[in-house]
């Protein structure tokens, strides 16, 4: 058993930053990912097939590859960086907003996929029923699609949050591991290990292990496979 170490301010900053990052990322992804999943679930166009593939790409790409491209794009002279600059925004690499942008790409499939599966599983009938009861398309989305797919929304929220908490490569590339600013928990653990501070690393790592285990256990306890389809 490792002795309980004293966590310093940087440890706590990493925990706080990680929770904040995962919360912001998950909320933004739910906001953008739900309409995207809705479209992917219902469209039969080739464009949807293409976009569907792009959405799942972060599942298989090494995070460092993903982070590398994001860094190039978000750099002040990169295409996205210039766009942000013209809007009057600060350069994103090595900032919190850069971390959020990177995390959103990294966790995108974990939010969109469960939503898409749940929405596609509803079929056409409930929406036809709602239409004959005078519900407009937007009304049908909020009054029928979302409540009927609430298990999918829950899965997407939990997986998006947990997956963002667990990222490493992308945040390292795009955040630069600046203590207090862009140093998330996984990076903090890595730093402790490099400094041979195994007690701190062990307790932080154990905390994350317990967190991830409990999250997945809760999902399985609800009896629905989280990433089916």
């Amino acid at each position: 058993m490792l002795p309980v170490p004293t966590f310093d301010a940087e440890d706590w900053a990493a925990v706080g930053l990680t929770v904040r990052l995962a919360t912001v990322t998950t909320l933004l992804l739910l906001l953008l990912g739900t309409p995207l999943a809705w479209w992917l679930a219902r469209s039969r166009s080739r464009l949807a097939a293409l976009v569907g593939t792009l959405v799942t790409l972060p599942l298989v790409l090494p995070p460092s590859v993903l982070g590398f491209y994001l860094l190039l794009m978000l750099a002040p002279q990169g295409p996205l960086g210039q766009f942000v600059h013209e809007l009057g925004g600060e350069a994103m690499p090595f900032t919190f907003s850069g971390l959020v942008a990177g995390s959103m790409v990294y966790s995108l499939p974990f939010v969109v996929q469960p939503l898409r599966t749940a929405l596609a599983g509803l079929g056409e009938r409930p929406f036809e029923v709602a239409a004959t009861l005078r519900a407009t398309p937007l009304d049908r989305f909020f009054s029928v699609a979302l409540p009927s797919a609430r298990q999918g929304v829950l899965n997407a929220t939990v997986l998006g949050f947990a997956h963002t908490v667990g990222e490493f490569g992308v945040v390292l590339m795009i955040g630069g591991n600046i203590p207090g600013r862009t140093q998330v928990l996984s990076l903090r653990i890595y730093e402790h290990v490099e400094a041979m501070e195994y007690a701190q690393a062990g307790w932080l790592a154990g905390g994350m292990l317990a967190f991830s285990f409990v999250v997945l256990l809760l999902l399985h306890a609800r009896g629905k496979p989280a990433l089916a389809g």
Partner: peptide, 8 residues
């Protein structure tokens, strides 16, 4: 359909 006063 949603602008037609019908029951189905």
């Amino acid at each position: 359909p949603h602008r037609r006063a019908l029951g189905y």
